[in-house]
Amino acid sequence: MPSSSYLIVGEKSFLIDPGYKNESLPLVLKELLPSGAELQILLTHGHIDHYESSFEIKRTFGATIYVHQRDVKKVSIGALREVLSRKEEVQSHWRSLGFMEFEEVWRELGTIQALYVDPIDEVLPLPPSLKISESEELRVIHTPGHTSGSVSFLWSKRSVLFSGDLLLPSDQETWLSGPCFGEEDAFLEDYERSLKKIANISPELILPGHGEPFSNVTERISEIYLKKKKRKKEILNAFEKNEKLTAYSISLRLGDKPKGYPRLFHVGMIFELLKELEKENFLKSEIRDGVILWRKV
């Protein structure tokens, strides 16, 4: 699904998540921006579906590109290229999940990366806040989980939150980079801490990274936790007596249909829930030849 882009026009103008390359975007911006306006590009995180057109917009309008320090490398060299540069580390992590489609997925990632030319360009770390005008500002909130450098932008005066991929509409799910690619600070615990931050702020309107805006923030966060509870029950029911399973084999048993790259996200989330179930004393793990095996207690 295409990402959502947002434009704030003020004394300084901000383009949040310009998305994939789009020939019409520079033309639209020329129509909407005041003559000589200073434009800043703000990225909620370093995934190409949110930032690819940033470089063209920068060249056309002299814009400055900002992303959280933890995701600067993803944007400056390309998110998939960063993963591909860590082959041994990522391969070891996938092996621990029991993931059996390594070669297929690795080729798929390489093919996807080859479709994009990510120029190394100046990308700056986000400051704590950005002024829209003398009386209004965007507050930068570090909300890791989807990536280690994911952020949300809070327009406090209007109680609006640009959530990126942290909080999406109910027909979509946020995938975590930690369990998929071994990325630090992008695991389930990080994601849930970020959700609590947003719940405490309780904005009136969410403008997400994909899909339609929504306002039922508390209900949406509750839905996420209810879905997690249901998934944990399904995982426990997948075990036969005295059986030892990997995260990958559980994904297959639960009937997760995607293959290759998309299945990796399912396996990663199952891995996170397995760890949580072990902390709750429902499961026990052991490592055999680099593979983590799980069994019911």
Rank of each mutant, 00 (worst) to 15 (best):
R86I: 03
G260C: 07
V267W: 05
L29C: 05
E243I: 14
F102D: 06
D121N: 06
E122Y: 07
R107T: 13
V297G: 13
I250A: 05
V28G: 03
K257P: 11
V117N: 10
N22W: 09
V72C: 06
S133E: 13
E136C: 08
T60Y: 07
V117F: 07
H146T: 12
G255I: 12
L33D: 04
V117L: 06
V67D: 02
Q91K: 15
G145D: 11
W155S: 03
K259C: 04
S163L: 03
E212Y: 04
L29V: 05
Y20F: 15
H146Q: 11
P18R: 04
F239Q: 09
E272V: 14
A114Y: 08
S170F: 09
T174I: 07
A186P: 02
E122M: 13
R193T: 07
I77R: 03
A37D: 06
L32S: 08
L42N: 03
L274V: 05
E286K: 13
V217M: 04
G260E: 08
I224K: 05
R81F: 03
S148P: 13
P127S: 14
E272W: 09
L274W: 01
E223W: 12
E137H: 10
I8A: 01
I77E: 03
D289N: 10
K227M: 09
K197M: 02
L277V: 10
W155R: 07
F14R: 00
R59P: 05
I16P: 00
I48V: 12
T111N: 10
G164V: 03
L80H: 00
Y20T: 07
K229V: 14
H146Y: 09
K275S: 11
G164Y: 00
E88Q: 13
L207P: 00
Y261I: 15
M100S: 10
I141Y: 00
K227Y: 07
L168S: 03
F271K: 10
R86D: 07
V123D: 02
A238P: 04
W106S: 01
S92P: 02
L97E: 01
L84R: 04
Y225R: 12
P125M: 11
L154E: 01
